[in-house]
């Protein structure tokens, strides 16, 4: 099922590539989003309501998105970076200013997420989804508790060749630093050496480094433990009817993220992009988004409440125990990035 999905994605991508040259035509919107993160029903609803033809293209990491935009790729109207990449894109002048505050549905946004630290005046971003990064275990026959990062980075022998890890250092190293009790955005080579040793030891248990195939691999048993995002893991559990799949909230802490809708500089259909952004802040649409993705909604609970799938309220994945520390990834210095990349290259050399 997931593979079929992928093939469809790849086909969409090919079509998007074909038509990106003619993006100037009116009545179009080019939406560039993470893999498996766009509810097709909502896109259809938006098309029906506005008559705007939407093309969805996908990427697998913030880095891919940044590289693509940096390379001068134009033609995208709305993209979905995480908070630390929003900071980079604003400082690099890569985003169009949009009047989010003036939009009719802005009042639906939860007060906590109005004017967030990465966009204090709400000039560039509108909220999309929020969640956390950790890992999931198929608890069937598993001897551990499923409550520590140690189970992921230093797995038991039964996990040999059964672990899947995200393929970007940006998603893995912050968790490793957290496990080792070291500061984030680390510029200290001695600390990063420890991270490297930890990851090299973990590698003996790793089946694949991939940020897209964890649902398929967990479902068919190719792996028993995998890097995961909270909502995606819940979707995985429900869609694959895998009640034994546990998304771990490690006692050492969890990485939080907040994805926003932004409009890249030079977007060909800015007006349509703004319509789309306002559409997504509608209470019913925002709730449907969360119902599809299974991530927490950044809209007011009072607004989305009645439309939200009740299982979201009690789902173990997205309701984090208050004792678990949540760390929001920051933008690291060039020096830290260089060290991270060195660790990663050594890991996969």
């Amino acid at each position: 099922m997931f593979i079929k999905h992928h093939i469809k994605k790849a086909a969409t991508l090919a079509v998007a590539a074909l038509f990106s040259g003619s993006a100037l035509a009116e009545g179009e919107l080019f939406f560039y989003n993470w893999v498996d993160y766009t509810p097709p029903e909502l896109i259809k609803k938006f098309e029906d309501e506005t008559g705007i033809k939407v093309t969805v293209d996908t990427y697998d990491s913030n880095e891919t998105l940044l590289a693509k935009l940096k390379s001068g790729a134009t033609g995208y109207d709305v993209v979905v970076p995480s908070q630390n990449f929003v900071t980079i894109m604003i400082s690099e002048g890569m985003l169009e200013k949009i009047d989010v505050k003036g939009m009719s549905n802005y009042e639906n946004v939860d007060d906590r997420w109005k004017g967030p630290t990465w966009d204090p005046n709400q000039e560039y971003t509108a909220p999309w989804q929020m969640g956390s990064t950790s890992f999931s275990i198929n608890m069937e026959g598993y001897e551990g508790e499923g409550n520590s990062l140690g189970e992921f980075f230093e797995p038991s022998d039964s996990m040999k060749g059964k672990v899947q890890v995200f393929k970007t250092p940006d998603e893995v190293i912050p968790l490793a630093l957290m496990y080792l009790g070291l500061p984030q955005c680390n510029e200290n080579p001695a600390d990063m050496k420890q991270v490297q040793e930890l990851l090299l030891k973990q590698k003996e248990y790793v089946k694949t480094y991939n940020s897209e195939t964890m649902v398929a691999n967990l479902t068919n048993g190719e792996v028993l433990m995998s890097s995961h995002w909270d909502g995606y893991s819940m979707k995985n559990r429900l869609d694959s009817k895998m009640e034994t799949l546990k998304y771990v909230h490690p006692k050492e802490g969890i990485i939080g993220w907040f994805d926003s809708l932004v409009v890249p500089k030079g977007a060909p259909n800015k007006a349509n992009a703004e319509k789309f952004i306002n559409f997504m802040m509608d209470a019913k649409n925002g709730a449907e988004l969360s119902n599809f993705n299974r991530y927490a909604s950044p809209l007011k609970a009072s607004a989305v409440g009645e439309y939200l799938d009740p299982t979201l309220g009690t789902a173990p994945e997205i309701n984090i125990d208050p004792s678990v520390p949540v760390h929001f990834s920051e933008t690291c210095s060039a020096k830290a990035t260089k060290l991270y990349d060195r660790v990663w290259t050594k890991l996969l050399q």
């Binding site: 880095e63 891919t64 390379s71 590698k203 089946k207 991270y340 990349d341 290259t345 996969l348």
Partner: peptide, 17 residues
Amino acid sequence: GGKKMMLSNLIQFQFSS
């Protein structure tokens, strides 16, 4: 499985992460 980089993966890695 992406456990060992090849030249092309290394190049892609330099342009992304």
